[in-house]
């Protein structure tokens, strides 16, 4: 870490304490170079690894490029040493909005059904993640006997690789051999065909994902609570506030920046959460519990991989999430939060 000692001035407040500088660019550079220096490494890595493929993906969604038609010519190497190259008969081309028309009209895949399932899945998961995470964090934030033990036990689900947990829950919901149906039978309820109906099938995936995601929420919010200055609580107590009032007026506002982030990113991640649906329900029954990402993956990546189709789905998913985050931001701004 470089320690800068030469330049004492720049406080975040833009008030013009300095004499006027020759050019605006120069002024801007002088004032902000350290901020830029702090973010530039991240920007470079993201630009190369994510942004470039993403922009290319948007471009591809207007073509019909697949694994089979992407090369200008297909060469066959013979083991005897010769190589024959033939021009690709169906070379890829621009198809305008064809991909979008085909996807949105339902000609390819089940876009609208997948979107509906995705929305149910996302809302259910995020609400329970945040609600349960907040509740547990509040409880664990108090001094009490066994707090460290509770914290460790409650965070353990996070430490198991997600795909192992997915298998564990799949075993629990196994219709013939699973614990869930054994318990139901034990209390005299008929066993459930969990994966025979999309609602119960989706339920198993949501339960799995809630179990997986609550520890993260809990820890993130616990960290947020620790940055709330203790004297706020003390002052409130002197004012005679009840625990509920303290929670509502100190804890929740104090958690706002963190909550805003975890809800926003939690929504984005859950929306794109691939492995849980893929492994736990496998889209059963008959693809009815598929969400957008898993549906898109199966539609585009089984057999000959269809890059233009997968990009089209990617762009549609991106658009939905962008619209969501713009609305989310507007909502927050109404309440005085800016970012």
């Amino acid at each position: 870490m470089t320690t800068v000692t030469a330049d004492p001035a720049p406080a975040p407040a833009p008030a013009g304490r300095r004499p006027k500088q020759p050019s605006r660019l120069r002024r801007s550079w002088d004032k902000h170079w350290y901020a830029w220096a702090m973010v530039i490494p991240v920007v470079v890595v993201l630009a190369v690894l994510i942004f470039y493929p993403l922009v290319r993906g948007i471009y591809l969604s207007f073509t019909n490029l697949t694994e089979a038609n992407q090369a200008a010519e297909i060469c066959t190497r013979s083991i005897t040493g010769s190589e024959v190259c033939k021009p690709n008969p169906n070379r890829w081309e621009f198809v305008g909005l064809d991909n979008y028309v085909r996807v949105l009209s339902g000609e390819v895949g089940e876009f609208w059904q997948w979107t509906a399932v995705t929305l149910i899945w996302t809302v259910a998961c995020v609400v329970f993640h945040y609600g349960l995470g907040l509740g547990l964090a509040v409880m664990l934030n108090r001094p009490m006997w066994g707090r460290t033990l509770y914290r460790i036990l409650l965070v353990l689900p996070w430490a198991v690789p997600a795909f192992v947990s997915a298998f564990a829950w799949k075993f629990i919901f196994n219709e013939r051999f699973g614990l869930a149906n054994s318990l139901l039978t034990a209390v005299g309820i008929d066993p459930v065909d969990w994966f025979g109906d999309w609602r119960t099938s989706l339920l198993t995936a949501i339960v799995t994902n809630i179990w997986l995601g609550v520890p993260f929420m809990m820890v993130a919010l616990l960290g947020g609570m620790q940055t709330i200055p203790a004297e706020l609580y003390e002052a409130a107590e002197i004012d005679g506030a009840t625990p509920w009032q303290r929670f509502k007026n100190i804890t929740l506002p104090g958690l706002r920046p963190v909550s805003m982030t975890v809800i926003l990113l939690g929504t984005i991640w859950t929306f794109n959460m691939f492995p849980i649906i893929f492994l736990v329900t496998e889209g059963q029954p008959a693809g009815e519990s598929e969400i957008l990402v898993t549906g898109a993956y199966r539609a585009a990546f089984e057999g000959i991989r269809n890059y233009s189709l997968s990009s089209t789905y990617g762009v549609l998913i991106l658009s939905i999430l962008l619209v969501f985050s713009v609305f989310y931001r507007r909502m927050l701004r109404k309440q005085g939060e800016v970012w």
Binding site: A68, R77, I79, T80, I304
Partner: peptide
């Protein structure tokens, strides 16, 4: 056939195999 159509494989005709 899928790999072959993509040009990912050697054609083995004419070899000992």
């Amino acid at each position: 056939p899928e790999f072959a159509s993509l040009g990912h494989l050697y054609a083995l005709d004419g070899s000992e195999l």
